[in-house]
Simulated scan of single mutants.
Amino acid sequence: MSIVIKFFIAPGDASAAGIADSGPDGVFGSLTCGNFDASEAVIEWESVLTGQSFEALVASGEPHTVTDTGDEGSPLLFVISGALQWTLAGASAARLVEVGEVWIQERAAEGEVFAPEMAAELLSDLADLARTADGRGQTVITS
């Protein structure tokens, strides 16, 4: 089964929720990727980037949910934390490669395989999206 994940920029939770069913294409800057658990990935990336434990981040309520009807097939939207957005926006290319390598190792321990080039490109593109969002005073949402 293929999972399509979209990271996109939105002015806030309400505007993101307003496009939950139609998607962000053509409305906000976005990045499309797939085949991993996005909510788990953003926590893992934040843990690597900030040094906070995965458990502490989960306990803090990050990332927070914008929409979740609980219906299969219905969109789940969540906002990446401000700390992750800020850290991604300021990360160097070398740091993003390091984060990708750690993430790949963590996923491999769970039986998932990702190419280093894919992880580096994904995190680089996500960092670009975070920089754009920061410049606009907006947030990065994931669906």
Rank of each mutant, 00 (worst) to 15 (best):
G26N: 06
A130Y: 03
T50E: 03
Q105Y: 01
D37G: 02
A133S: 14
L122Q: 09
I9C: 12
G23N: 10
A17C: 11
A41L: 14
V27C: 05
E106A: 11
L122R: 14
P11Q: 10
V79P: 00
F28A: 02
L122V: 02
A59G: 08
S74E: 14
V79H: 03
P11M: 00
F7D: 02
G51T: 04
E40Q: 10
G12Y: 06
G18Q: 13
L77I: 13
G34L: 11
H64T: 13
V97S: 09
T67E: 06
L96D: 11
G100S: 06
R131H: 03
A38L: 03
F36S: 06
V48Q: 04
A14G: 04
L129F: 11
G100T: 01
S74A: 15
D21P: 00
E117F: 03
E112H: 13
F54P: 01
D125N: 15
E110F: 03
G73E: 05
A10E: 01
L96N: 09
E98A: 13
I80D: 03
S30Q: 09
G111A: 08
P116K: 07
S60V: 02
I19F: 07
G61N: 08
V97K: 13
G18A: 15
V48S: 00
T139D: 05
A120L: 03
I43D: 01
I104N: 09
E72L: 07
Q138E: 15
V27D: 01
F36C: 10
G18I: 04
S81E: 04
D25L: 13
G100Q: 05
F28N: 12
A93W: 00
E117H: 04
L49H: 04
R136G: 10
L122P: 02
P11T: 08
M118Y: 12
G29F: 00
L123T: 00
F114V: 11
E55H: 06
S39F: 01
D125R: 15
G90L: 00
P75W: 06
H64R: 15
R107K: 14
L129T: 07
V27K: 14
S15R: 13
D134T: 12
Q138W: 15
S124A: 14
A20G: 09
R107D: 00
P116L: 01
D13A: 15
A93E: 14
V48A: 04
H64Q: 05
D71L: 11
A56E: 14
G90S: 11
W86L: 10
P24A: 12
F7W: 08
S15E: 15
G111S: 07
L88R: 08
I141A: 10
D71T: 09
D21L: 13
R136E: 14
V48L: 07
S22W: 00
V42F: 06
L122D: 02
A10Y: 01
V140D: 07
E40I: 03
V48W: 00
G137P: 09
S53I: 01
A119F: 02
Q85N: 01
E121A: 08
S74I: 00
T32K: 12
A14M: 10
G18M: 12
Q105F: 01
I19T: 05
L122K: 08
E46I: 01
V42R: 01
F7S: 05
F78H: 13
V140Y: 05
G70I: 02
S15Y: 05
P11E: 15
T50K: 07
D128E: 14
R107Y: 05
